[in-house]
Design a binder for these strands. Structure first.
Lengths: 181, 181
DNA sequence: AACGAAACGGACCAGCCGGTCCGCTTGCTG
DNA sequence: CAGCAAGCGGACCGGCTGGTCCGTTTCGTT
């Protein structure tokens, strides 16, 4: 980055990110930039000044979420009970996916360099969680972090079609039970 | 329907349905009508003559698939081993979902009357399969056909992100194992 | 206060896509 | 074979959306 943003620009950047996250989650991956700008309370030209394309905006939002998950994964690496730590991370990831459903749908297709790096680091950390759990005999299956991410993400997506509000818990439980010895 | 279609119109209708199924599966739910028409070898005006809107076309394709699944479910109702029958239906459904990934993604949102009726009948039949399996003690969880459909569909979708060609089998296995006593 | 740079936002552009229309073609029937 | 209705397909339309541009506003500094 060349130089610091002006105070108002910084504020608007934050608002745009928040509004975009909310809009992607609520409306879906095809929300218009106009809708995001409206929610952020700015003109849509302002959105394009901070994020050159719509994809760049999506990537920035994804990045924020991935960073949050990385922090949580690292915290859980400190737990003694590896099985419980992995399980807690699954529940945490499930809640993230639930909050930002539409966002996570497209995360695999996102080719942004920074996002790829963040994904890689997150996968490595979660793989550590998994290996620890396996060493303690807490999980049986030969699944890696990608598998678990995909299973959790899709269980959440599946639960969105259900009318029962607790469907997601039950589906995640099915996945967790599928991992245990 | 007022009167029978002319021979060429009948042929084109079939081609359009096939091309649409293929295109929805390959490209995604947002394929353009032009692309479908191109694959079918007709002008795009012809598509709109048979199917008044894009949604009607999608509904027609979904209908065909649902009918195929219904037939299979009814066949499996005749099996003596209810647990094996349910399991076989899950594998069958998984293959359908795999073939027509993008199509099944949107099936829940489809409000077409005929499709709703077909869905309802399929659900009733699959619920019979499930009740039989439960009575024989082959499954434990309190899940209905909607739950299982959602879980299977999303496991398949999840496996599409994986680079391993056998990922879908492993994910379906996780789901099946999550059902057993 | 005054000034320059940064930021803003809405008018505008271009391409895409679902859907319509109409002049031409083709398959049926007598 | 002749006549006609059904079918065909591509030109065309209108609306939407990502992205650009530039005259105006706002911020930070001296």
């Amino acid at each position: 980055m060349a130089t610091a943003l002006r105070a108002d620009a910084q504020r608007n950047r934050g608002r745009i990110l928040d509004a975009a996250a909310e809009a992607f989650a609520e409306v879906g991956p095809d929300v218009t930039i106009d809708e995001i700008a409206r929610r952020a309370g700015v003109g849509h030209g302002t959105v394009f000044r901070r994020f050159p394309t719509k994809d760049a905006l999506r990537a920035a939002v994804i990045q924020v979420r991935l960073d949050e998950m990385l922090v949580q994964a690292k915290v859980l690496l400190g737990r003694a009970d590896a099985g419980a730590a992995l399980e807690e991370f699954v529940w945490f990831g499930a809640e993230c996916a639930r909050r930002d459903r539409a966002l996570f749908e497209g995360v695999e297709k996102c080719l942004d360099v920074d996002v790829s790096a963040a994904k890689h680091e997150l996968h490595e950390t979660v793989d550590k969680l998994i290996r620890r759990a396996r060493r303690q005999g807490a999980i049986r299956r030969e699944l890696d972090s990608r598998d678990i991410g995909a299973l959790v993400g899709s269980a959440i997506q599946a639960s969105m079609h259900s009318e029962r509000p607790d469907a997601w818990r039950r589906y995640i439980q099915v996945v967790l039970d599928g991992l245990r010895p």
